[in-house]
Design a binder for these strands. Sequence first.
DNA 1: ATAATCCTTAAACCGCGCTTTAAGGCAACC
DNA 2: GGTTGCCTTAAAGCGCGGTTTAAGGATTAT
Lengths: 146, 146
Amino acid sequence: MNMAFTIKEASERLGCSAPTIRYYEKEGLLPYIKRDKHGNRLFEQDHLDWIRLMKCFRATGMKMSLLKQMVNLALDGDSTIPQRKSILNQYKEDLFRRQSELAEALDAVNNKLSIYEDIEMGRASSESQLLNKMENQQHSASDREG
Amino acid sequence: MNMAFTIKEASERLGCSAPTIRYYEKEGLLPYIKRDKHGNRLFEQDHLDWIRLMKCFRATGMKMSLLKQMVNLALDGDSTIPQRKSILNQYKEDLFRRQSELAEALDAVNNKLSIYEDIEMGRASSESQLLNKMENQQHSASDREG
DNA sequence: ATAATCCTTAAACCGCGCTTTAAGGCAACC
DNA sequence: GGTTGCCTTAAAGCGCGGTTTAAGGATTAT
């Protein structure tokens, strides 16, 4: 067994472009890719799994430079596990920060949307200053211009 | 009343650089900024609130071009509210997508971390292939190499 | 044999979102 | 009246993360 994939197969399975994969390899994020006799890359399942993981981390804000640090540490063996844990724990903090940013944004969007509905239903007006139209944060809080 | 702020005050209150604020204005994200007799910008509370909201949206992946669309629609009056709602609803979808990406990444990080702890405690080994060191997804799932 | 389809590389290019630089104006303090 | 410190503008520069281009090699199908 030990099935190997061409770059095209890999890119199809992963949903990321072949140039991107090559770029990752060039940047050192993807060590130990073997080649066939013609110099064509051969990806194994392990590589696909690692790329998939990188994709997941990248999509949530991890920098390539951090991925590279982790690769380099991994290549240095198990003695670097504490450092890798520390990187991942920092990244985890980052994820939590992003979660609360998302929650905040969701609140703000919902607030805006309900303001718009109020305006549509005639329950509120879009105030004087033009910016207020986008900007009317209070939403039926203070109405001292009766 | 109707307190106005210099760009420096605005940038301090908002935690974003003065050049960024100028850039936003230039890009049309920030209409109706008044000037004093010397041509210096004067920001009112409304502007600060709107910038703060933009910051919140930007931090969670909204493109400047989308912000600009919303500004332009707002400048066209209440008749564009349906379009603005539609934009915000799409963005909301985006936020949900990001939320699940974050959740996925958190899972993956926690998985990695527990693999590392297993290795540290001698409960698992860091397998053969070098990539496996980073890459050993299964984590005490299948161990058919007895 | 020729065309299509895959692969390779190096290098150039791109969009985004700022940041930095350069050149200058006004105002207040010492 | 010079220095400091704020402001202005236009334009250039930058870091990131790829994408695109160009030039070429090998395999397969017709």
